[in-house]
Amino acid sequence: MSTQQEDSLITTDVSITDTGRTDQPDTTVVEAQNLDVFYGSDQAIDNVSMEIPEHKVTAMIGPSGCGKSTFLRCINRMNDQIDVCRVEGDITFHGKNVYDNDVDPVALRRKIGMVFQKPNPFPKSIYDNVAYGLRVQGREKEVDLDAEVERALRGAALWDEVNDKLDSSGLDLSGGQQQRLCIARAIAPDPEVILMDEPTSALDPIAAAKIEDLIDDLADEYTVIIVTHNMQQAARISDKTAVFLTGGELVEFGETQRIFEDPEHKQVEDYITGKFG
C-alpha cells in the first residue's frame, strides 16, 4: 500500500487500490433523490440522485465549484448555517428525509459527524477537544470518559503521539496532528456516518498519507463520505466514486475501479485523465 502511495505522489497516472470491501453487498444509508440546492438565485446542485452504501468509502470528485462540498453539507444540514441556501428534493438518512420539519439538525449531526478542510480544533486541551461531543450530547456520565477519549484517539492514530500531553492545547499540535485530532473529535461520540470535506488538502503529503490510511480503517466501523480534489486519493481510498462536473450535475457514479478504468462519459474520462478541470 505504501509503495503505491509513494508512486502515485510522483506519477500522474492513477493507481487504484482494492480496498477489500467491494465484495460485500450494499445497504444504502444516505440517499439523494432529485436534489437541487440554490444559493440565492445560483444553483449549486442540479437534480442529483445517488445511493451511498453503508460501511464503505464514497468519494466525490470534481473541479472547484462543482457542488460536491455543498452536497456533503446537505447530508448533515450544515448548509442551515448559510441564510441564502435553499434545498429542494429529498436527501434521506435511513429512509428519513433530513429536511423534514420534525428532524432536529442537532440530533442529525449527533449521528453524522464531520471533518473539515482546514483543521479546526477548539482552543481547549487535547482531552477536552475529544471529549467535547460526548459532553455536549450529555453522555459523559453514561460512559467512561477517559476510556472513550483513548478509544477515539487510538481510532484516529494519534494516541501514541499525545498520550503524555492530553492537557496541552490542541492548537499546539502540528497541522496533520490537528486534523487527526478533529477526526478523533468526530468519532468520539460514535456517529454512524463521517463526512470529510477535503480533509487532506491543507496538509503535507506525509500527513495526508497518514489520514488516508486512517480513512481506510474507519470504513470498518463507519460510513465515510469524502470530498476530494485529488483524483489519486479518490482512487486509492474509495469504494465508490461520484464525479460532479461544473453546474452541480452528478455526471457519473459507480464502483471506483469502473469509474477510473472504464468511464461511461467522455467528460469524466477527460476529467480523470487531466484534459480538463
Binding site: V106, F122, C182, A186, P189
Partner: peptide, 10 residues
Amino acid sequence: VRNGSYATGA
C-alpha cells in the same frame, strides 16, 4: 471553530 462545534452535535 463554530462549525466544528455544530458538526459535533452541539
